[in-house]
């Protein structure tokens, strides 16, 4: 749980080897390898249908890959018993694309769900920690007793982030965190993730299409092309001659984002 734990040896928190995914005859991934390093912000990009979200779900154990192994925090998630799986899940946090808040609960109750499930904190302390998380996610104090339907899209994402961070996870998974936010809100969200990542020492695995997020907060970028992944820094991808990668980073939007950054 503590983010400064250095128990994981070589510093790889997610290790994917030889991953293959097929839906019927459609092959999504084939021989995909990926290492995510402790403490980095990894952005995952790829065209529509290249299986970004599928990869995320496979790492989270929501979908079983056809072949290959996935190690999460040193444990092969295909081989885990139920109890071990829950233990690993408690060390990760996920922000789904639309927040996925439980609509029958208030924001504060949503954040307290993992605290109640995985710890034996007294109610009052759990409520206090939930309050801290809500504030750290950048929500006003009045947001706690509100229901998700009373929140704007940006606030729902922040609330989802607060729930994902409830247990001080080591790895934070984000699925399109800035989709549906206005540019100012998206930039603020990027900065929020960056500052939380620094203060909590998180590893962030972020599926995104937001070029601004990629250029401003990602340490490395993983590009899904040809059913595999190419990981590199922004500079390395800029010099890549693969047509899709070239078009992606050298297209008008890619250029604009880099100029904004420079």
């Amino acid at each position: 749980m503590p983010s400064f734990d250095s128990s994981s040896g070589d510093g790889v928190v997610i290790r994917v080897r030889g991953l293959a995914t097929r839906f019927g005859k459609q092959v999504v991934h084939e021989g995909l390898d990926l290492d995510v390093l402790r403490g980095e912000v990894l952005g995952v990009v790829g065209g529509s249908g290249t299986g970004k979200s599928v990869l995320l779900k496979e790492i989270l154990g929501l979908i079983r890959p056809a072949e290959g192994s996935i190690e999460l925090l040193g444990k092969d998630i295909g081989q885990l018993s139920e109890a071990e799986r829950v233990a690993v899940q408690a060390r990760t946090g996920v922000l789904f694309q639309n927040g996925a808040l439980f609509s029958s609960m208030t924001v504060a109750e949503n954040v307290m769900v993992p605290l109640k499930e995985h710890t034996d904190l007294p109610q009052a302390l759990a409520a206090e920690i939930a309050r801290i998380k809500i504030a750290m996610a950048g929500l006003p104090p009045g947001a706690g007793p509100k229901y998700p339907s009373e929140l704007s899209g940006g606030m729902v994402k922040r609330a989802g982030l607060a729930r994902a961070l409830a247990l001080d996870p080591e790895i934070l998974f984000l699925d399109e965190p800035t989709a549906g936010l206005d540019p100012i809100g998206a930039a603020a969200f990027d900065q929020l993730i960056r500052s939380l990542q620094r203060s909590l020492g998180l590893t962030v695995f972020m599926v995104t299409h937001d070029l601004d997020s990629l250029t401003s907060i990602c340490d490395r970028i993983a590009v899904l092309v040809d059913k595999r992944i190419r990981v590199g820094t922004l500079e390395q991808h800029l010099n890549d001659s693969h047509p899709w990668i070239h078009d992606y980073f050298h297209g008008p939007r890619g250029r604009a984002a880099r100029h904004a950054e420079a």
């Binding site: 034996d120 904190l121 302390l125 920690i129």
Partner: peptide, 13 residues
């Protein structure tokens, strides 16, 4: 020691 979630309940008391 380790001031984390695991210890928080007892620590608070």
């Amino acid at each position: 020691g380790r001031w984390d979630l695991k210890a928080a309940g007892g620590l608070a008391r």
